[in-house]
């Protein structure tokens, strides 16, 4: 789904991408609407994040998940947004995660700030982050059933009653 036709970012940043791809051979660098993205299999995510940290990406600004139910073969995609304050640069890591075994390694050892973000992703999508110190629900009540942001979870709208209540037949 990446817009490959769009112009890529400046070349200086591409060196970092190339260097990262070298460190983690399974990583595949590319562009999406002018941003840097790297696709990596789940098992190499922690290694890539560690390498990115060594390349100056000191902040994990966001972790989220997209549910491509019925649109792609691999249902989920974990999206990690990294930021380098020192080099003023961003990097996005995309990790495909299958529906059957939704598990990726936790980034908390690399980026402590991933804690809440991963808990939110777990709460909303049911993705397990292996090695997370406290993988519990964060936004929904503890006894909630299901993961609300999955596409097959109903919005849960109740019919709006504008006039008299509907007749029971």
């Amino acid at each position: 789904m990446s817009g490959d036709s769009s112009p890529g970012p400046p070349a200086a940043a591409d060196e970092v991408l190339a260097s990262l791809s070298e460190a983690v051979p399974s990583a595949e660098a590319g562009h999406s609407v002018g941003d840097h993205v790297i696709r990596v299999p789940a098992e190499d995510l922690a290694r890539l994040a560690g390498a990115a940290r060594d390349h100056g990406f000191e902040m994990c600004s966001d972790i989220t998940v997209v549910d491509y139910l019925g649109k792609r073969r691999v249902r989920f995609e974990v999206v990690v947004n990294l930021l380098s304050v020192r080099h003023n640069r961003r990097l996005r890591i995309l990790v495909p995660v299958p529906e059957g075994d939704p598990e990726v390694p936790s980034l908390v050892p690399v980026y402590p700030g991933a804690n809440f973000l991963e808990r939110e992703a777990y709460d909303m999508f049911g993705i397990r982050f292996a090695g997370h110190p406290d993988l519990t629900r964060i936004l929904m009540p503890d006894d909630w059933m299901g993961h609300p942001l999955r596409r097959d979870f109903e919005v849960g709208a109740v019919p709006v009653q504008f006039k008299a209540s509907p007749r029971v037949t």
Partner: peptide, 19 residues
């Protein structure tokens, strides 16, 4: 058009991003 993007601005509390 199909695609995915992340945009961030400086909100009063910090980096506000939209994916």
């Amino acid at each position: 058009p199909a695609g995915e993007t992340y945009v961030a601005i400086e909100a009063p509390r910090g980096e506000l991003g939209c994916y």
